[in-house]
Design a protein around this nucleic acid. Sequence first.
DNA 1: GAGTGGTCTAGACCACTGT
DNA 2: CAGTGGTCTAGACCACTCC
Lengths: 223, 223
Amino acid sequence: MWERIRDEVLERIQNRVWRPGDLIPNEEDLAVEFGCARATINRALRQLSDDGFLERKRKAGTRVALTPVRHARLSIPIIKDEIESSGANYSYALIHRGIAVVPTHLALRLKMDSALCVQALHLSDGQPYLYEDRWISSTALPDVLQESFENISANEWLVRNATYSEGEIAFQAEAATKRDSEILNVKEGAPLFVLERTTRGDEGVITWVRMAYLPGHRMVSPI
Amino acid sequence: MWERIRDEVLERIQNRVWRPGDLIPNEEDLAVEFGCARATINRALRQLSDDGFLERKRKAGTRVALTPVRHARLSIPIIKDEIESSGANYSYALIHRGIAVVPTHLALRLKMDSALCVQALHLSDGQPYLYEDRWISSTALPDVLQESFENISANEWLVRNATYSEGEIAFQAEAATKRDSEILNVKEGAPLFVLERTTRGDEGVITWVRMAYLPGHRMVSPI
DNA sequence: GAGTGGTCTAGACCACTGT
DNA sequence: CAGTGGTCTAGACCACTCC
């Protein structure tokens, strides 16, 4: 029912019955029109508001957004699923694991002097797919020092063992460094799609990761 | 009230009172615990489920997600706002406007033979910021041929005049072409963050756009 | 002050799905 | 079949904010 209402309202917006900036009828009137309770109308309109199609204010009423759809919901790759869903065979290779001093360009973000560095390559049908460079705080997660990461990816280990509270994710294009190029088997300077993710717990950064995709990778989302 | 419940449940997940994969109490029991109606519990849990923290199934109950937070909500840039929110001055320059045959690499996606091509540069404090290459279907939007796009960006015009229904957005890294490099004033081959967006109405593609950012651009989202 | 959306309640029925 | 979440209702009060 609320979905029917949501779709009907969306259609009116898309067919310009209600145009960007227009005020639409209030919940009570719509409830009468659709022959349902106000709560049901509220459910439908709240969804459309969350999705960016409507803007709602008390007393001022509900308006069609001037800039429809301002958000895209990107699914963050769980690499294994991402590769297997394309029908390919997933594998994982540990490249490096060791306690190290955090590079200066990261030190500010991480606010820790030394951490466990885990570097790994994710492969699709045996071909390089993604190079993961991860730093894990051994202060926040002392247990991490017991794990070899030879058979389990850092991602999976963290999901099972870490208590996180918030973080950020960033996307950008970077030229392949010498190391990137050797590991991913591409030319130095090739344009790489890079995802950086910082995860924090209650007491500061738990982990920071840079994931560099093979050139040509696209991250797609319906809108 | 429902926000208090949401936060409390989230805290229990983050403090591992309820661990990934665990079944949590059903709505009725939680309603008793929190001293509220079941609908209020439902509201809180539905939100957490939408956000990817919980997985809910009828009869099976509610479990803590094994892969917490699988989604990032990216705000799609309204270029003007994006630049002005950084405190810089926004300007816009039309580079090219004309009816043209759609390049073959686009023809499949667009399914139209000829279209209006609008190319423009968005500037931040007078410096190149983003190169926009857009194709607009003149079949779907005959009015577009009357617009010069000298004083209004295609983006803004489309928001006001187009009826869209759905689309996709894709992000990737690309090496700057010769044309990119001339317009953005960067080296040929520089890694560009590129956003492609296809927008469809009821009768096919309305517009396709490629937006190439200056090297170094980051798209960031809280998680 | 008054109109609007935001939320809560108590109760009900239904749809799905694990057993 | 039975337990769980999904939804709907009718009514209520409240918070915000425009006038």
